[in-house]
Structures are given as C-alpha cells and as structure tokens.
Design a protein around this nucleic acid. Structure first.
Lengths: 245, 245
DNA sequence: TCGAAATGTCTATTGATATAGACAACCATA
DNA sequence: TATGGTTGTCTATATCAATAGACATTTCGA
C-alpha cells in the first residue's frame, strides 16, 4: 500500500505543502483520532512516496499553524482538529449559528466608511447606484481563532449610528435591534471557493495556497426590503456550511 | 500603484502558480472584460512585483488550461471566463439547475458497485450499517468540460436495475422516475472546500493546488425517506452555488 | 538499564524556481 | 513602410525544494 496517498510534482506547489494540506485534512476528518498522533515521519514518507525530510517540512508547517506538536522520542501530537459548522437558512445569523460550538466569539471591526454604492452593491441592495451606504470591514473569531473576514454594506439612510452600535455589540443582529429592526431574514446566499489572497493570509492567519469558502449574502427585513449585503471569506479548513431544506 | 497585487514568497507555493490563480480569478470576475485581453506581461510583472519570466510561467499554465491564448505581437487573449451557477434548494437537480447555462450536459458513469453501507452512508440514508446499497461513481460535464465528480449511494432493495437505467438516462431524476419514484426533494446539503486530490486532477482536468467545492447531499422521497446520499466534488473555478431562502 | 522507536541535526547533491538581460519575431497602425 | 508595443527565445546566475545518508537525542517499555 506504499505510495497510496499521491502527490504531484512540478506543478508549482511544493510537495511539503501538498503533504501538509493532506495531513491537515486527515486530522480534521478524524483519521488519527485513535492515537491522537500523526503517524511516524518514516511511515508518512513511505505513504506519500517522498523523503523523510520532505515530510518533516510539512509537519514543521503544521506545527507553525499550531495544529500539531512534535515531541522527540514520542511522536507528533495533534493539538487541534475542530471544524465549525455554519447552518445556512432563512434564519441565518453568524453568532447564533455557531451555538455551543465555540465558547467565545468576537467580531473585530477593521474599518468602516460611508460611501456611494457601486453597481454590485446597488444591485444586491436594490437601490440606485450612488446611494450612500455604510461599509464595515470585520474579522470574526471563534475561541480566539479567526474564522472569517467580511465586508458588509448597509443603506446609510436607514441605519444612522450603525458603526458605533456595531462596535459595541459586535453583532449585526443586536445592531439592527438597537436601530429599530427587530427581525430580518436571509434572502440569498451565493457560495464559491478560491485561494486566499494576501489580505486573507494576514487577517485569517493562513498560509499561501490556503482555500477559502466565499459567500455573498443578502438579508432583508420582514417586508423583503434588503437591509444588508455582505461578502464573507471563511478559512475552509476551519468551517463547513449546512443547508437544511 | 506598482506591487499592489501582492504575492508571498517562500511558502511552498511557487510565485507563478499564485499569479496564475490571481489572474484566473480576475478573468472570471470580469476585470478584463473591456479589452478581452490580459494586460501585457511587462505590466503584470510590475503589478505583481516579479520578473517578466515568472509572469510568463503563470500565463503558460493558464494557456494550458485553455483559459487564455497568447498571440505574438498582439497580446494574451481571454478564451473562456464562465462560471456555472448551481441553485441549491428543495428542488435541486443537477441538469435542470443548469438551465440554459450549458448547451449540452453529460454524466459519465466511471464505476459502480453493490456493497454494504458503512457507518457514514448508513447514517445519512437512515438505514442499518451493513444494509446493501448501490454506489455510483460519476463525472459530469457541461459543454464538454468536466464540472464535478461524485459518488452516490442508493438503498439497493428499493431500486433494482438502477445502474443500467442510469447509464442509459445519464440522470438521477429520470432513473428515479423509471423505477417508480416520480418526485424527490433535497433534504440536506453540506458544503466544504479543499484542495484537489490526484483523482480530482485526473477526472476534472485540473492542476495541483486547484480548489474544490465539496457537497454532501441527501435526497428524500415525498414522505421524507432518504433515497440518495451523494458526495460531489466541483471544480471551484467553474461553478458557484446559490441558495434562495 | 538496555534497546527499539521516534524526532532532531548535519552534510552533500540534484533539479525546480526566480531573477536578469539581450534580442528576435510578430502585429497593428500612424 | 517605419515604428512602438507585444510575445517568443536564449544564456547565465542565485536561491529554494527535494533526495540521500549518517548519526545524535529523547522517550518508553521490556
């Protein structure tokens, strides 16, 4: 069964990085749950058909991410393996959706602006291009680990003081409530995937080549009037989405 | 504005591949729609802060994928930029969902087997582990381009002759209809993202490091009894999902 | 306490990646 | 048809990625 877990050569992605990605995936899928450890370097080298030093480079990268910890004489221990689940439904809310999956969640406001809606934002919010909108740039953490970074736009006229309220509540739901919108629903969600860009790498503490799940979502009030359009970029190795119909 | 589009060095992902991924993304987002061409190599080299030869490696990779075509003396033309949209709803069907986005769709049956349900399949189909199930391995094309590869499981007792029917109809919906199940609904969809593995690279004609959207989906009959569980792996640069609530 | 098994460190060599510069070939158009 | 702008090709060099082998160090159990 040697060489079963194949890697590709000469493709612009270093073998050690491909192997790191495979092991990370294997860890989060529970493949090593019995021992709580990654197989020995020599075994992995045999499985992937590469030199032991190449495996060591991969494990060093995972150690850097805090996923594993090597102990001389014992082996390489798994430190962390969770993947958060986000339900997507008419009632989708970021923090509530996490439920008891995280003990602690935070939303850090990176920046904000009041600006004129561009064509895309105007289309989603169903307003005229050029209408004033408020833009928020946020990073969301769960248990001190960044999970997603996002940009949200809101019609400016409807939500005066939104920025300050959001900064205090760290919650869109609470901000809406404080500004007189007691309930809202998720109308549309688009999901794509892509590689992380340099901004993602910094904000989400990722390594290049990392995979993102990207959502474009629109929320409306109970009359169907759009109140929020947001683009969120999730670290794909930390989350999954669930849709119940 | 030089060096605006940043790339990361010494991270196991070659610069030319990072740049290829960025340009691919820029193309599909319509950034170069005005000219129908990629900017000149010297301009890209300046933007990314790399040598022109490095940009050429990236463009060569995109040409290999059929996304661009370089013409000496003129520039590098964009050949293809589409991204298919898959609506996910209670009525989700693969081929119908594509609507008029593709002129021609195919489903190639790679393999099939009758086997005992493992723990995961049993849980999703709500049957006892060990119950006989039929497994289908398929690759789906749209306009001659592979879009997704998938594995589906069906309760064997309920659908005798399923394999032969599917091979003829190339459609789950038509197969169900032929076997007496006139209608069904999508109950649950889980979405994750990951890097392509070696099987994906071959079946979907991808290059290593490519990004996949992965769905685990369960369909039921109108009484809520599971009739199909499937894991599908979509080439992320060719598709997006839309959820309407 | 010895030995097996595991990670840590070092040297050396080869091939892929990236930079640098120069010039050829080709296209559109003024 | 001359020119500027573009892609194509070649040489040379430095650095990173990967292989190979040897041996040290640590842990754990027989």
């Amino acid at each position: 069964m040697a060489g079963m877990k194949q890697v590709q050569r000469q493709t612009g992605v270093a073998l050690w990085r491909q192997i790191a990605d495979r092991i990370r995936e294997a860890i989060s899928s529970g493949a090593y749950d019995e021992t709580g450890m990654v197989p020995p370097e020599t075994v992995l080298a045999l499985q992937f058909g590469v030199n032991r030093h190449t495996v060591r480079s991969a494990l060093a990268a995972l150690a850097q991410e805090g996923i594993v910890r090597a102990v001389q004489g014992r082996g390489t221990l798994i430190e962390r393996k969770e993947r958060l689940n986000f339900p997507i439904s008419r009632r989708t809310r970021f923090t509530d959706g996490l439920g008891d999956q995280a003990r602690e969640t935070h939303s850090l406001l990176l920046g904000h602006a009041e600006e004129a809606a561009n064509a895309e934002v105007a289309r989603w919010l169903r307003i005229e291009p050029g209408t004033p909108v408020i833009r928020l740039e946020t990073v969301r953490d769960a248990d001190r680990r960044p999970v997603a970074r996002g940009t949200s736009w809101f019609p400016a006229a409807r939500f005066p003081g939104l920025v300050e309220t959001y900064r205090q509540t760290e919650s869109v739901t609470k901000t809406f409530a404080a500004l007189g919108l007691s309930d809202y629903v998720r109308a549309t969600t688009e999901i794509t995937a892509a590689h992380a860009d340099s901004g993602d790498l910094a904000d989400l503490e990722l390594t290049p080549g990392a995979v993102l799940l990207i959502t474009k979502a629109m929320n409306t009030d109970l009359d169907g009037v759009p109140v929020q359009y947001s683009i969120s970029r999730f670290a794909a190795d930390r989350v999954q989405f669930t849709i119940e119909n």
